[in-house]
Simulated assay, not measured.
Amino acid sequence: MDAPISRKRSRLALDDGEDADDALKRSRTQSEIEELAVIPPDEAWTVDVAGILASNTLAPPPGNHLRPHSNADWHRSGSLFVLCVQGSVQLHYDLLCSVLPQLYSVSPSLQALVLCRDPSTHVPSAAAAAFSLPLVQAVGPGYNHFVRLGLLHPLGGGEHPLDALVVVDGRARRRLVLPFGWGAGKHVGTPAGRIVQAHLMNLLASCVETLARE
């Protein structure tokens, strides 16, 4: 009798027209994605939310169809934060903007911000209909929010980040990190990356729902 095919082996089964190298890459990516999860509270890093809000910030221009919530009441409301840590990748900004209505319906006081090196020159998206979020200067005299988030790019000269979406709970703890352009998200911008994109956005929505109930 033939032995049953294991889950690990089945991941390597070739699709029509797929060579062994592509199948191996797909399997590794799937494995990395499956390891992404909401971080338990006792294992989560503390995020300097007050420092982020006190950093130089450019407000979005007027006339946007979906205006971000005011950050003024975050201490009182215990708001969740979704931080779009952005260096050279634009995709996660566009994906975040596309799901913000869904996230706001679950957590109305949720705050969405972009952390970038220099707000005055930063272009978060090339999409014509992109949502405009506040741009926060992540690197300045005496502080580097990329370092505090654990997302400093190793080849970025100390000022550039690894692109990611980061969810911070109402107690300023880093509860989810979704990588874009590296790690489990290294293939997210490729023609075959739509499945990865969908999975990452599902994780984001699920995380916000979980934290909103805590």
Rank of each mutant, 00 (worst) to 15 (best):
M1C: 02
K8N: 15
R9A: 08
S10Y: 12
A13E: 13
D16L: 04
D16V: 12
D16C: 02
D19Y: 07
K25E: 15
S27F: 07
S31R: 10
S31H: 07
E34Y: 09
A50R: 14
L53H: 11
L53D: 09
N56F: 13
N56A: 05
P60N: 02
P60W: 13
P62N: 04
H65F: 10
H65Q: 05
R67P: 00
H69D: 10
S70M: 03
N71Q: 10
S79P: 03
S79K: 10
H92P: 06
Y93S: 14
L95C: 01
L95F: 05
Y104A: 02
L110G: 01
Q111S: 11
L115K: 05
R117M: 03
R117S: 12
P119E: 04
V123E: 15
V123C: 01
F131A: 15
S132T: 15
P134I: 06
P134Y: 12
L135V: 08
Y143L: 00
N144W: 01
R148A: 12
G150T: 08
L152A: 10
V167Q: 00
V168E: 01
G170N: 06
R173L: 13
V177H: 10
F180T: 04
G181L: 00
G185D: 07
H187M: 10
G189F: 04
T190Q: 15
G193L: 11
I195V: 07
Q197R: 08
L200I: 08
L203M: 14
A205D: 14
A205K: 09
C207F: 13
E209V: 02
T210Y: 15
R213H: 10
